[in-house]
Nucleic acid binder design. Structure first.
Lengths: 216, 216
DNA sequence: GCATATTTGTCCGTATGTATA
DNA sequence: CTATACATACGGACAAATATG
């Protein structure tokens, strides 16, 4: 049996594989991605791999330079500041002014529960995933699919910075903050929840930036 | 003569060519883009054309469905509402709170002058381009490159809806509005300029939506 | 500054899966 | 159901740009 097409989309599978390797830190920021080598490892042709690269470049996980190839994106301190500025700009009004629904409240609770469970297992990558899902739930309050996609792309980009930092130090302090935010929002105290969220983002930005600066 | 490599970047050139045809209405929303045929017309291989399609899909100008190919994107009324909601969310605070610089003021004046000149020549596509450039200048006040790129992508997407409408009716009324907004902002009356901008966006949205609905 | 090796950019031919008349 | 058109994917080839010694 020919399994090449059983997933239906070789480029998508390759992109997913690379995405996971980047998020987990197996491929480090700045590392060049050689087409021939990676195509061989993933078992796809160079043409297919180049399509996967396009998809990842679209998400900001890799950057492509003409005639110089593709490499894992490396966030500058300025880029990190930009992303947090936009997270504030998007998430705080979304939480403060968004229409509360049972569906979103349930999704928030599920995310914080998943983060807490992953903490006890010591799986910090999973904690990070659950954390981002919590904040995606906040943005989903806007109901604007383009804004949701934009925020999701930035969140994925931010994980590039997380990848080189100590995941426990980075994520552990924020689980309880998310619990508080979710509880306040569920109780109808959206304005107070938004203030807690503003605190979260400030502290998180300073932590990521300070650690980022000491490394580079 | 072999013209295949003389431009250095066939995929980029092909994407630019298709982008222009879509914006000018030569390719209409919903129209399927056959790989073999278009590759032949543009004089590039199918591999190269597929890379160009990825780039256009990234910008929201075309949509790709698995095993069903690529077609020119067709904006729904809901999509148009989403885009205007985000234009308000982004442009109004940018104009109201942005730091005024001579550079941006000059860029605004250049844009409205270009729009006015194109009006007298009857070149409405050019008017549309100048109009969008004016609003890009507003967003550039934020200094956030990611926000600027996001806004630009939405503006390009919006031109899909413009393409099937009467360009004179669509653009003519807004040239003078931009003149007023630019003048107020240059005079330091940012808050008033922002109110005029809010008016602009409301009227524009209603015009595009009403014409869109009567057509579809 | 030059010659060489590596890598990317692009094209072609072909086989196979998928959708549709 | 079959036939046809089309998209998906592979592998090989060569040109052009870049990196290396």
């Amino acid at each position: 049996m020919d399994r090449r097409h059983e997933q239906g989309q070789a480029a998508l599978a390759a992109a997913g594989h690379l995405r996971r390797m980047i998020v987990e830190g197996a491929l480090r920021p700045g590392e060049p991605l050689r087409e021939t080598k990676i195509a061989e490892v993933l078992g796809v042709s160079r043409n297919t791999l180049r399509e996967a690269f396009r998809s990842l470049a679209n998400d900001g996980l890799v950057v492509h330079e003409m005639n110089r190839g593709t490499r894992v994106n490396q966030l500058s301190a300025e880029a990190i500041r930009e992303i947090y500025e936009l997270r504030r700009f998007i998430e705080i009004p979304a939480l403060r002014d968004g229409r509360r629904t049972d569906e979103v409240v349930a999704r928030m609770r599920a995310s914080v529960a998943a983060a807490d469970a992953a903490r006890h297992r010591g799986e910090w990558i999973e904690v990070g995933t659950a954390d981002l899902d919590f904040h995606r739930a906040i943005v989903s309050l806007t109901g604007n699919s383009r804004l949701i996609a934009f925020h999701e792309k930035m969140a994925a980009e931010l994980r590039l910075a997380f990848g080189v930092l100590d995941p426990e130090v980075l994520h552990e302090p924020f689980i309880d903050r998310n619990v508080q935010i979710a509880a306040r929002f569920a109780d109808g105290e959206a304005a107070f929840a938004a203030e807690l969220l503003a605190d979260y983002l400030s502290v998180s930005e300073n932590l990521v930036l300070s650690t980022h600066l000491t490394i580079h």
